[in-house]
């Protein structure tokens, strides 16, 4: 049975969250020119783009480098399930001594973030990596925490969380209730 999904955030809420996170990034990084925004393929890339636009708007013209990272070749669960390739990695600058803000839509077990950290290291040695996510849904399996969060949402491990410009939706599966 397909359960209806519940809207947790609307389109306006998502938009406001992105603007707020953009302010927080500016506030926390006094040396804003060393910051690179990197979205995780494919769920994080549109949020990374929107963050870059918001930062440019707020600062009246600071354009930060924008990249994308594909972590499928760095996963730790190859033997458990087939790897599906998303769009290729595109890191426009050497990351050595840069402050990287890694962007994803949903933070769950933390395993994709672990893989992304390993992937980023192949593009240089960043001075620092910060993590921005639209949704933190809990159930971490690794010692990883976000620096910027759109919304904390308590979930059951079998719930599905979807994030898009239209909002954040949670679908609960019957067997989990």
């Amino acid at each position: 049975m397909q359960n209806p999904s519940t809207e947790i955030l609307g389109a306006d809420d998502v938009s406001r969250a992105i603007t707020r996170i953009a302010h927080e990034i500016i506030e926390r990084n006094s040396d804003l020119n060393s910051v690179v925004i990197v979205g995780m393929q494919t769920g994080g890339t549109w949020i990374a783009e929107r963050l870059c636009e918001a930062i440019e708007r707020i600062t009246n013209g600071t354009v930060l480098p924008l990249g994308a990272v594909d972590i499928s070749m760095y996963r730790d669960d190859f033997s458990l399930r087939p790897i599906v390739l998303s769009a290729p990695t595109d890191i426009p600058v050497d990351l050595t001594e840069r402050r990287v803000v890694l962007v994803d839509d949903v933070l769950f077990t933390g395993r994709t973030v672990r893989a992304a950290l390993e992937a980023l290291n192949d593009h240089g040695r960043p001075r620092a990596v910060q993590l921005a996510v639209m949704v933190d849904r809990g159930h971490r399996e690794l010692p990883i925490r976000p620096d910027y969060v759109g919304k904390n949402i308590p979930t059951h491990p079998t719930d599905e969380v979807s994030v898009s410009v239209n909002g954040v939706f949670v679908t609960t599966h019957a067997e989990s209730v």
Binding site: S72, M73, Y74, P88, T89, D94, E118, A119, D122, H123
Partner: peptide, 15 residues
Amino acid sequence: HMTEINARPVAKVPA
């Protein structure tokens, strides 16, 4: 994807 990897300074992934 592999061409992108081969263009990196460290052309190696743990896949």
